[in-house]
């Protein structure tokens, strides 16, 4: 049996922080816009109903309070969502998949192929309009380490899924 046991130079190992990440599809932001719009609409209807059925609220002061907090909330939601989407990115390497996200933080999760248990692909109603899909990757690490990557072109998502499945098969 041939046996080698060379010393490993930690600094020579491939660096995950220097990998080139690919961002989500540009159209995905439109899906996010739609989602934001729906959330805002539901809240607006809720407030409207609240004011309509509650005569105590029918004065200028309450309108002002509701109006301003609604606008502030809408702006925060809009900017944080857009920023968050822009900061999401993923990368595939020979032996693992990386997913980077986070608004205040930069969070990178790395899943080696030989630890992936299962891969799922989801297509949301709005994502389908732009031919986008979501990939969900499961490891035995539980929900904290399961990764969902939204906003990938459907064909690309399918090929990634194929690739991952193939890699999993090879390991069993």
């Amino acid at each position: 049996m041939e046996f080698t046991n060379e010393t490993i130079d930690i600094n020579q190992l491939p660096k995950f922080e220097e990998v080139h990440f690919s961002p989500l599809n540009k159209n995905y932001i439109k899906v996010v816009y739609i989602n934001i719009a729906i959330v805002l609409l539901i809240i607006a209807i809720g407030i409207g109903v609240l004011i309509y059925f509650n005569e105590d609220f029918q004065n200028t002061q309450t309108y002002l309070v509701f109006g301003i907090s609604y606008a502030v909330f809408a702006l925060i939601l809009y900017f944080s969502s857009v920023m968050a989407v822009k900061r999401r990115a993923f990368a595939l390497r020979d032996k693992d998949i990386l997913y980077k996200r986070g608004l205040l933080s930069t969070t990178t999760t790395i899943m080696p192929f030989n630890r992936i248990q299962h891969v799922a692909m989801h297509e949301g109603a709005f994502s389908r309009i732009y031919k986008l899909a979501q990939i969900q990757i499961f490891t035995a690490g539980g929900n904290t380490s399961d990764v969902k990557i939204s906003g990938i072109e459907k064909e690309k998502a399918e090929s990634i899924k194929e690739l991952l499945m193939q890699k999993i098969q090879n390991h069993i």
Binding site: F16, T109, T139, G141
Partner: peptide
Amino acid sequence: QAITAKQYFWHKSADVGHLILHTA
């Protein structure tokens, strides 16, 4: 099973970050 590395932007200059090891 998987590894997560995390850094808040205000920790960048201090070179401080968090590490999470996911096991089964």
